[in-house]
């Protein structure tokens, strides 16, 4: 994408040189802010491909982010996009979804945003089976603020606020999502672009609380501080230490420092969404007096 100075319709027509994800990006906001070697852009590429393959009306897809490096994703996607406050993308998305159930609402944010400051919203949205797809780009650190310890940081590596190495136990995010009731839980790394794109595609079509963890390098802060090399070195780590285990027990997929990464689709089940439950329940309580909410034309 960087080789192309700007979007040029002629180039596309004559040479087919346009990156297929370009129409999904706000061209007038490129270049993006992400560092060389960062994996967030790779996840965006996968997401754009998933959108292409989904065949969805993109006017009916909204993306909501919180704050942080991944929080900037909303600003680059050519969708209805909302860049909200730190940790609160999920409750904003909940309001958006409930007030216009015809929308497909995607929450796209980082590990610190979603699971530290936003942890309470995460567990409750999963419990309610709110119909949201939550994509968590996990780089084990707070990138935007300069490399502080996150709830996902494995025990061992140094962070600016754990200067002698992290001694806090991290979250196992797929286990958390599973335990709270998510209907779809998958983890891939940015090495696994095909699998990640496929998971995102499945997630877009899945009804209910979908959680997809995308592990991504932070070469500028996490890797450099811990002498783990650059972005490519982290991709090599993902390649060498990843084990695909679809259907794995999420209890068993925690990640140790530079240790084995279990990837795959761990959970895929069906449960009524919050709105489906509400409609069904009120249908029973009120009978014909109740008009099911949000199921007629997707607009009300």
């Amino acid at each position: 994408m960087n080789e192309l100075p700007s979007f040029d319709a002629n180039l596309e027509q004559e040479f087919g040189l346009i990156n297929p994800v370009m129409p999904y990006l706000r061209q007038d906001r490129i270049p993006h802010i992400w560092c060389p070697g960062c994996g967030i852009g790779t996840t965006v590429n996968c997401f754009a491909r998933a959108l292409t393959d989904s065949g969805m009306d993109l006017d009916k897809v909204a993306i909501v982010s919180g704050i942080g490096c991944t929080g900037r994703v909303a600003g680059y996607m050519n969708l209805d996009s909302f860049h909200t406050t730190h940790g609160r993308a999920i409750p904003f998305a909940t309001g958006l979804k409930l007030a216009n159930p015809g929308m497909k609402v995607v929450v796209y944010s980082g590990d610190g945003d979603l699971t530290a400051i936003g942890g309470n919203h995460f567990v409750h949205a999963a419990r309610r089976n709110m119909d949201l797809m939550v994509v968590c780009v996990n780089n084990f650190t707070y990138g935007m603020t300069g490399g502080q310890v996150a709830p996902t940081t494995p025990v061992g590596p140094s962070q600016t606020t754990m200067p002698y190495g992290n001694f806090e136990n991290p979250f196992n995010l797929p286990f958390l999502a599973d335990a709270c009731g998510a209907v779809y839980v998958a983890r891939w790394t940015v090495y696994h672009v095909k699998q990640l794109a496929k998971a995102l595609l499945e997630g877009l079509h899945k009804k209910g609380f979908v959680f997809i963890e995308a592990m991504s390098p932070c070469p500028t802060l996490y890797s450099r501080r811990n002498r783990l090399g650059d972005g490519v070195d982290q991709l090599k780590y993902y390649k060498e230490k990843s084990v695909i285990r679809n259907g794995a027990d999420t209890k068993e997929v925690g990640i140790a420092y530079q240790g084995e990464i279990v990837v795959g689709k761990f959970v895929d089940r069906d449960r009524p969404t919050w709105l489906d439950s509400m409609n069904e329940h009120y249908g029973k309580v009120f009978g014909d007096r109740f008009t099911p909410y949000g199921v007629t034309d997707g607009q009300e």
Partner: peptide
């Protein structure tokens, strides 16, 4: 913030 999502 849910109400802000609802408004949009």
């Amino acid at each position: 913030i849910a109400i802000l999502g609802g408004a949009w």
